[in-house]
Amino acid sequence: MANYIIKRLLQVIPTLLGITLITFLIIQLAPGNPATLKLQMAGQGEMGESAIAQQIIQQTKELYGLDKPLIVQYLLWVKRVFTLDFGNSFKDHRPVLAKIAERLPITIQLNVISIVLVYLIAIPFGVYSATHADTFSDRALTLFFFFLYSLPSFWVAVLLIMFFGGGDFLDVFPVYGISSIGADSWPFFRWLTDRLWHLILPVTCLTYGGLAYLSRLTRAEMLEVIREDYIRTARAKGLSERVVIFKHALRNALLPIITLLAFLLPAMFGGSVIIESIFSIPGMGQLGFESVLSRDYPVIMAITTISALLTLVGLLISDILYATLDPRIKLE
């Protein structure tokens, strides 16, 4: 086991280097560069009148360290990252890690809540579908979840805001941000309800689409397990259906579902640019999107690297979990 973990950890290094190198090359070789972009920005689709002398652009490039050969730039970056220094954003010269630290908690709150909700809702319905396979209610559930999955989230977000956010219809939910102004000085309980109140619409938008996949997966896994011999044995022993389903079947069916969590890590870290921009939530999605648009290389690199690292570790943990929980699987 220890050997296996060490081996896997060693594998992380080349993968990580590969990811960073690919990202680095993509963003550097792509058209558009941060120096000229910064000098010409005056607003959307509008340019400032100032002239841009070539010499000044050159100075800005030197300032950003973009005048060196690509490979040197990459190696310098790697060297800095080893000391956990992801550099400063081109946009405002603040440390990239500080910018991420500012936004990550918000994104994680949103995503953790929505993932937990997806699991809480989808698994029971999946089990229900499996135990009622091919009945009318199973089909209705299938149809309903697919129906939800098929609704583009930006569309739903916009409609929800229109209907529940105090347009010409209901005024129930706040439509932007994640807390009321001044909420930071409120007592905890009031702060919490205010926060949750703000999160309801965005979390709804992030949640409904995931239900179909997970409930279908649960259903499939359950059906698979139910056909296994040990379930038959359990039934034959006269155990109640409830015990059979929950204690024996579900437990085993859940395994692949739980390990799925590892794959959700990058999405959790990356946030959702669409939902965040509609609801004015300053999360990772917005940060990533803006950094791509403004060619803020250090931020792009940091987001990719950290998300990659998290996922690799997540994959490792899920494999280990799998092996620990399922005696049939042995780690080489």
């Binding site: 990058p266 990356g270 999107f289 791509v292 990659a308």
Partner: peptide, 21 residues
């Protein structure tokens, strides 16, 4: 490894990055 690399980058972020470029 290649699969891992693709799995680790938030897909939509990657699509936007490439499409933007």
């Amino acid at each position: 490894r290649l699969i891992e690399i693709l799995l680790t980058i938030p897909t939509f972020f990657m699509i936007i990055a490439i499409i933007a470029f």
